[in-house]
Computed example of a mutant assay.
Amino acid sequence: MASDVLLEVEDLRTYYPIRGGVLQRTIGQVKAVDGVSFVIRRGETFGLVGESGCGKSTVGRTILRLVSKTSGSVKFRGTNIYELNKAKLRGLRPQMQFVFQDPYSSLNPRVKVGDAIAEPLIDHGLCGKAEAMERAKEVLQLCGMAPYHYDRYPHEFSGGQRQRIGIARALILQPDFIIADEPVSALDVSIQAQIINLFRDLQEARGLTYLFISHDLSIVEHLCTTIGVMYLGTMMELGPKCELFANPLHPYTKALLSAVPVSNPETRRERIVLKGDLPSPANPPSGCKFHTRCPLAVEQCRTEVPDYRDMGGEHYVACHLV
């Protein structure tokens, strides 16, 4: 594996048991993540996109061991994090941080935001309380806030300010890798632009690596270098941003791209409307999971699982028709 690879995810599966009956026995499984593989190189922003319920957030949480995997491997700098004991995993935590989708629910309403930001430094024994307070004020300023915001509570801030606080809390430990789970989906468009630019500025200043989870392809196009498209827990297509937007191969990717608004009013794009609802991950379709909604599906799609193939230029696709 190339030396510049920071994170390697191989055949990752995360299943949740379905329990029923008087004894609450396992009667089925929700296949939230079902065989996902990708690598993220140092300094790049990897975008993970797809409809709500496709397993994007579960991938991020499984990578950081916030939820447990069913099978597969997650390697950070060549080390399988699922083989680490609690002490070694705790030592690795500062290098891998998470920015949550809802900034308000991820903050304790009874704790001052400055104390919430400084807490990880004290908890990991990296410095004393006075130094932690000063460093928290510095990172607040780095994220576009003022030092006097340290003593305020979460309810005193707007949505955009809370998200900046969430980013500051992730940055305080000076991580190498940040997973951002739809960090701008609940924000106004003008605030979205500010937060996206903040992510880019921080990446340039600190050499950060991101896994950016989103359902908004226009934001992903602006921020990411590599994009993976998920559907029902499976990676359907993966490739460099320019290649994926210029030459999408999977019918699902084409449908997603057709829904992206075009800035030029004179430009017309054929809208591909998918019929039917997203199948249940507890009972996924046989063969290609997308065949129940694919306008091009043939009999082979209904019976055989497509191979995940390299089409050249690090562009991968799982489709019988390509």
Rank of each mutant, 00 (worst) to 15 (best):
I81M: 05
L66G: 02
L66D: 00
L92M: 15
K86Y: 10
G60W: 10
G78I: 13
V74E: 09
V74Y: 13
L66E: 01
S71K: 14
Q95M: 13
S73T: 15
L64K: 03
P94I: 08
K75A: 07
G78F: 09
A87Y: 08
L66M: 15
S68C: 06
L84Q: 07
T79V: 15
K69S: 12
T70N: 07
V67I: 15
Y82F: 15
K86F: 00
L89W: 15
I81K: 02
L64H: 11
V74M: 08
I63F: 05
L64D: 07
L66A: 12
I81L: 10
I63C: 06
V67M: 10
N85R: 11
V74P: 10
V67D: 03
P94K: 03
E83S: 09
E83A: 11
R77K: 14
K75G: 04
R61N: 05
R90W: 09
R77L: 14
V74N: 09
K69L: 15
K86S: 09
R93Y: 01
V67Q: 04
R90V: 12
S73P: 08
Q95I: 05
K88Y: 02
L84F: 04
G72C: 09
L66I: 15
N80Y: 08
L92T: 06
S71V: 05
T79K: 14
N85P: 12
N85K: 11
N80S: 04
L89H: 04
R90P: 08
G72V: 13
G91P: 06
K69N: 06
I63R: 07
L64A: 05
P94C: 03
L84W: 11
R93P: 12
S71P: 07
G78A: 10
F76C: 06
R61E: 10
T70A: 10
G91M: 13
Q95A: 10
E83Y: 03
V67R: 03
G60T: 06
R77A: 04
T79R: 14
S68H: 13
V67Y: 04
I63D: 00
K86Q: 14
V74L: 10
S71T: 09
R65V: 04
R65S: 01
N85L: 13
F76R: 06
G91H: 06
R90F: 04
Q95F: 14
L66R: 05
L84D: 00
K75F: 09
R93S: 00
R61H: 03
Q95E: 14
T70I: 11
N80I: 07
K88W: 01
S68D: 15
